[in-house]
Design a protein around this nucleic acid. Sequence first.
DNA 1: CCATTACATCAGCGCGCGCTGATGTGACAG
DNA 2: CTGTCACATCAGCGCGCGCTGATGTAATGG
Lengths: 102, 102
Amino acid sequence: MLTSVDPDVIRALSDPLRLRIVNLLARETLCTTHLVEETGARQTNLSNHMKVLREAGIVETEPCGRYTYYRLRPEVLAGLSEQFAALAASARGVGENKRACP
Amino acid sequence: MLTSVDPDVIRALSDPLRLRIVNLLARETLCTTHLVEETGARQTNLSNHMKVLREAGIVETEPCGRYTYYRLRPEVLAGLSEQFAALAASARGVGENKRACP
DNA sequence: CCATTACATCAGCGCGCGCTGATGTGACAG
DNA sequence: CTGTCACATCAGCGCGCGCTGATGTAATGG
């Protein structure tokens, strides 16, 4: 396996609310106000989550007046997809390749 | 998006040690003793992590005498890969599809 | 038979993380 | 200018989770 799955990205996606946000952003670009409406979470809480997603490189921001729009970075998700595909392929090739009992 | 990313599976993979274990198991089938040697973690700790991976459906066990071998379930990883690929594809299609400011 | 090994489970501890309320800053409206 | 709105940041709280030591239970070896 050349590049393993990035732990930081996975960690950022491990929160249910953040995963919901990613799913929402996969349909349309939204600002914090929209996300507050959609998720029912507080603004402060949401802002914290967006910071995590931003620092993990999953999301990028686009300021628009006094609004901040968030959009997904598809390359990151595509990278995850490839890394898991590589893991799955490697796992399929394991077969009866088990290390002997010590 | 038909099937979104499974939060439980992602959560199970969000721990660095568990991710290491998955990477190890992608190469060869191992038992707990091997994993203790490879990771340096305590047996108790490892057993807890294996329980999490098992309950998430990522790993299946094969008892072999007094040893317990663990092997990955490639379908789960392949499923993750497809789900992230779908997310990435959807994210690419978003473009300038941004919801209007309220 | 008893000792050892492999593994699971449990109770307990400590820290990290998600949630919140309060506060600060910048952008627009009037 | 002042007030309001959108958003970020901070301090604090509480719970969950990862780690550990102790204990239980099979399976093997002598």
